[in-house]
Design a protein around this nucleic acid. Structure first.
Length: 429
RNA sequence: GUGGUCGUAGCUCAGCUGGUAGAGCAUCAGUUUGUGGUACUGAGGGUCGCGGGUUCGAGCCCCGUCGGUCACCCCA
């Protein structure tokens, strides 16, 4: 074991995996930019108070924050999510509404790491501030749905719920509290602890002894005000109009305390339940206000990159993109000629790699093969003397002899262009 | 944070009831005095996560610790 390793829950993303991450973010950007969203890049660190507004009943805030005092005696924290930062940015800059933004990047939570759960983890997401239209809820959900489709995922389930208006939610929480209190004998000890903090969260319990109690608990639906019920119905109708299948799940309460009305979650059908939440979101009317801004409607979602990639692996889609080079330059005369040729080819836009340390012809050819290049450009002492270079196609079927040929050194670019066109055509045939 | 489980070469792993380490792949070199991907030969590479303990002797047993993983919790 080396002396230094990444800290728990932190890891290096190496090639070719890193290319997959980049493409993931690029696909997301293209989906939401096509709907008018612009990218916001908030800082990784904010005043601790910004994140405290997420809610003091959530572990994300109370137990998992990477907070510390900086050299200027400020209480700061690494962001555990980005919604709060977006709302802070909104109150700070007061952009025109509706303000449609997307983000992509790492967040930090001090949790015990597990598969699909890291202390530094990437999310992509969108937020819309300043609009109350239920069709906006539909747009937001539909964009998440569309993104999964673009990745190639098919086994994603959309769970939908509404927590009602704040008053509805409060009345429901009260009813739940009463119900669970009356039945606390049947709950697990852990659920009783949860109950003391937030009765809604008890609905999330995955412990089997709780299942019966939860199944018989009061449902949120009975507590909706007429407005909340109408909003929820329009959201459902809109999703149906777009042929997006969903399941109403009245126990879907989401972890963050700021949610109001519409909440939703995307679950991966192939994943274990501990990791099956690929992403989720909802309305958080009130969050901007709690950060000192004007009363402002808000809705958005965040999708976890790690779990979504796990789901992609399970479904065999969205493989790491090919990052191989077009041309590999082999030079057995010391490497100076390779230096010139490589630079020339790169200038002309060809992805080009080469070998170093003046290794044997065989070793350099091996490296050329490994590079995935379609073409090798070879220079030995004979070629230097004759003023030529060898062009050798590399991707013919095993057993078939390579048809390499000499070309004049000064026709390199045009010859290589032709050879590449041919190689690509043969490869796709 | 609580509990289970695992931790041996770069990677995947084997190692019988304790007797001072192996395979496959990968890497490098040679068979081929200029040419890769299939074949053959060989080489390099490990303080068996770390620290204690038991023992004549520990990769194998015990304790602790760190890390991964699984469940709970939480959530993405």
């Amino acid at each position: 074991m080396p002396e230094f390793q990444t800290s728990p829950g932190m890891r290096d993303i190496l090639p070719p995996d890193s290319a997959r991450w980049r493409r993931f973010q690029a696909v997301f950007a293209s989906v939401v930019e096509a709907a008018g969203y612009g990218e916001i890049m908030p800082p990784l660190m904010e005043d601790l108070g910004v994140f405290m507004r997420i809610g003091d009943a959530t572990d994300v805030v109370t137990k998992e924050m990477y907070d510390f005092v900086d050299k200027g005696e400020r209480r700061v924290a690494l962001r555990p999510e980005q919604t709060a930062s977006v709302c802070r940015a909104f109150t700070q800059h007061r952009p025109l509404t509706p303000w449609k933004v997307y983000y992509s990047g790492p967040n930090f939570r001090y949790e015990k790491p597990q598969r699909g759960r890291y202390r530094q983890f990437d999310q992509v997401g969108i937020e819309v501030l300043g609009a109350d239209d239920p069709y906006l809820d539909v747009e937001v959900i539909a964009l998440g749905w569309e993104f999964y489709r673009r990745l190639g995922l098919r086994r994603v389930d959309l769970l939908l719920n509404s927590l009602g208006e704040p008053e509805d939610r409060a009345a429901y929480v009260e009813a739940l509290q009463t119900y669970f209190d009356d039945n606390s004998g049947a709950l697990t000890a852990q659920s009783r602890v949860t109950l003391a903090k937030n009765p809604l969260r008890v609905l999330d319990s995955k412990r089997s002894p709780d299942a019966a109690v939860i199944a018989a608990a009061p449902r949120i639906g009975a507590f909706y005000s007429p407005q909340a019920a109408a909003h929820f119905e329009q959201v459902q109708n809109g999703l149906t109009d777009l042929s997006i299948p969903f399941t109403i799940d009245t126990t879907l309460v989401r972890g963050l305390d700021y949610y109001r009305r519409t909440t939703f979650e995307f679950q991966g059908g192939t994943l274990e339940s501990a990791q099956n939440a690929l992403g989720g979101g909802g309305r958080y009317d009130g969050l901007v206000e709690s950060l000192g801004g004007p009363p402002t409607h808000g809705i958005g979602f965040a999708l976890g990159l790690d779990r979504t990639l796990l789901a992609c692996d399970d479904e065999g889609v969205f493989a790491a993109p090919d990052t191989s080079v077009d041309i590999f330059v082999v030079d057995t005369t010391g490497g100076r000629e390779a230096l010139r040729i490589t630079a020339e080819l790169r200038d002309c836009g060809f992805a080009t790699d080469r070998a170093f340390e003046n290794r044997s012809m065989k070793a350099q050819m091996k490296a050329a093969d490994r590079s995935g290049a379609l073409l090798a450009v070879i220079i030995g002492s004979n070629e230097v003397e004759a003023g030529t270079v060898v062009v050798r196609p590399l991707r013919q079927p095993i057993g078939e002899a390579a048809r390499q040929y000499d070309i004049p050194r000064d026709t390199l670019v045009s010859e290589v262009t032709q050879a590449l066109v041919k190689a690509v055509r043969e490869a796709s045939a």
